[in-house]
Every structure is written in structure tokens, then in C-alpha cells.
Design a protein around this nucleic acid. Structure first.
Lengths: 123, 123
DNA sequence: CGGTATCCGTTGTGATACTG
DNA sequence: CAGTATCACAACGGATACCG
């Protein structure tokens, strides 16, 4: 399980570094992952207030802020219904849904973290 | 390609969110991904000065800082050789090497980003 | 309901100078 | 060579108040 390096060419590797780095920046922020997960679970549009209710501990400001960023990056889609009591719904775009495998790999890694913690090669 | 949601149970999903969120925190920081990539490419120990040279734009302070954090999280291993001209080498631990698949999935996703950008479901 | 605006403390990042 | 120390600044995150 030690042969998982993504690529070996120095040139390719630099481009890879930049790409992955940018990818991570899109997911940075304390609540983005949680938001994406909630949207994954919803399997459809979700209202702002519902997100706010289901994400324990988040403030309106942060929720809005991260939601906007996610929208900017094309991961979520925001739909505004011009009604008397304003209604806004958020949902994952195709790009957002495509994050599934990556998230999954990350989760598998964190599980591995726990297993390895006691076996680390401590130089 | 829209059926990649990691799980569906609300309870499971919350745990998943927490796990993934913590995973991302370990990789947060402007230079960590780049460092990990350089280490992947090296396929072995790498000196501090070599990392500094290969990672364009990083300052000593940031390199040290992120390297320390990565070490704390058990992703890299630091080896100090008590010589007259100090020599320190860094290398990926098993846990660090295990990041390969996750990094790869993230890279694939960023590539998909470019492809989808023009096809987004614009509600 | 679904935001926006403002203030504030904390953390991350960077430039520069210095050291064992 | 491989750090450490210090200063400065921007971004992040949170609380509160106000608005369409």
C-alpha cells in the first residue's frame, strides 16, 4: 500500500501539486464539507433554514459565506423563489456530486489513520 | 455519475461529515499538499534545503511550520543527523503514502471541474 | 425568511533578521 | 544548513444588530 504515488515525472508532478492544492482550497473552510455532506444526504434541494438547523453550531454569517463560496466554485446551485416569505434552496451541482469518490477516499484514509497511529515507523 | 454519495443514513452521515472534516484539516495550509507531492515524487528522504529549493515561493518559516504540523499528524517523518553542518531529512510515513488514492481522486475531480464548467446545470 | 453590515478576537501567512 | 524570533497584515470565524 505504499505504491500509491499519483505520478512520477517532475514536470507533471508540479502541475499535479498546483491542481490538488487548488482543489483543496475549494473545500477549505470549517463548514464546507459539512454543507456538502448535508446536501448529499438530502438528495435534493434544501432550504437555508433547514441547513442552518441541521448544521449544529454554524452561524448565519458563516453558513452564507461558505454557501456563497461553494456557489462561486460551482459546487452548489442556489435557487431563489421571489415569494412574499423569501425562499431559497440549495442543491449540489453535477460537479458537487462528483466529489463523492474524493470524499470517500479521504474518509477511508482517516480510518486508516486510526489503524496506523500505533504502528508508525517512528524513526 | 451522480450516484456517488458516500452514505445515506442521517446518523452515519453526521459521523462521516465529522471524519471528512477532520481529514481535511490535516491537509489544510497553503503548502502541505505541495510538500506531500514533493515527497511522493522523491520516493525517499529529502533534505530541508532541497524541499525549499523545489517549492517555489515558500518561505523558510512556512516550510518549517507546515512540515512540523505534518510531522505532528504523523504524515511525514523527520530525521535529524547530528553533524557539524546540520542535516535533516523528511520522508512520507506509511500514513502519508496512504494519501495517494485520496489525492488522486481529488485531482481527477479538479480535472472534471474543467470539463463541467461549461455544462453546469445553471438553475 | 434569508439575508447584510459591523465589530472583534484568533489564526494563518509572509518578510526580514538573527542563531546553533 | 536548518532553523528561531519578531513584526505586520490579511483572512477566518463568531456575536450582534439591522434590512427587504
Amino acid at each position: 500500500m505504499a505504491e500509491n504515488r499519483p505520478c512520477r515525472d517532475p514536470k507533471e508532478q508540479h502541475a499535479w501539486a498546483t491542481t490538488a492544492s487548488e482543489a483543496l482550497r475549494v473545500l477549505e473552510g470549517k463548514w464546507k464539507i459539512v454543507i456538502i455532506v448535508q446536501l448529499f444526504a438530502a438528495e435534493g434541494p434544501m432550504r437555508f433554514s433547514e441547513l442552518e438547523r441541521r448544521i449544529e453550531g454554524v452561524t448565519q454569517k458563516m453558513l452564507i459565506q461558505q454557501l456563497r463560496a461553494l456557489e462561486e466554485d460551482g459546487i452548489v446551485i442556489r435557487t431563489l423563489y421571489p415569494q412574499v416569505p423569501p425562499k431559497v434552496e440549495y442543491e449540489l451541482s453535477e460537479l458537487g456530486k462528483a466529489l463523492g469518490p474524493a470524499m470517500d477516499a479521504l474518509v477511508k484514509w482517516t480510518k486508516l489513520r486510526g489503524e496506523i497511529s500505533a504502528v508508525r515507523t517512528d524513526a
